[in-house]
């Protein structure tokens, strides 16, 4: 079980958290102006990175806040967790 660093609460056990998919997907301001293909891209297409991935997590059984994380999908390492709206950190070399 992983320890995950909630940006608000600190390190807590994985079972307090919920994974919420890819991060930094901004909902289009005016979806009506998007073509079907553009909307489908927002709706369904994900990087599914092998390696460092930017993900959303929620401290659902804690403070309830959503945050972002940089996690390696092969080793499960967390390089960083950060608040929504913050720029993403560079992956470790």
């Amino acid at each position: 079980m992983l320890m995950i660093d909630c940006p608000w609460c600190g390190a807590r056990a994985e079972l307090e958290f919920r994974h919420c998919g890819e991060a930094h997907l901004l909902r289009p301001a005016d979806p009506a102006t998007l073509s079907d293909a553009q909307w489908a891209d927002y709706l369904a297409f994900r990087d599914n990175a092998r390696g460092w991935a930017r993900e959303r997590w929620r401290h659902v059984h804690g403070c309830g806040r959503f945050f972002n994380a940089l996690r390696h999908t092969q080793t499960d390492r967390f390089a960083a967790t950060y608040k929504p709206g913050q720029a993403w950190p560079e992956p470790p070399a």
């Binding site: 919920r18 919420c20 909902r27 959303r56 929620r58 659902v60 806040r65 959503f66 929504p84 709206g85």
Partner: peptide, 13 residues
């Protein structure tokens, strides 16, 4: 509630 919180916190902060 989870879905509404998601939009509240991350899309419409």
């Amino acid at each position: 509630l989870h879905m509404l919180e998601d939009y509240r916190q991350t899309e419409f902060p």
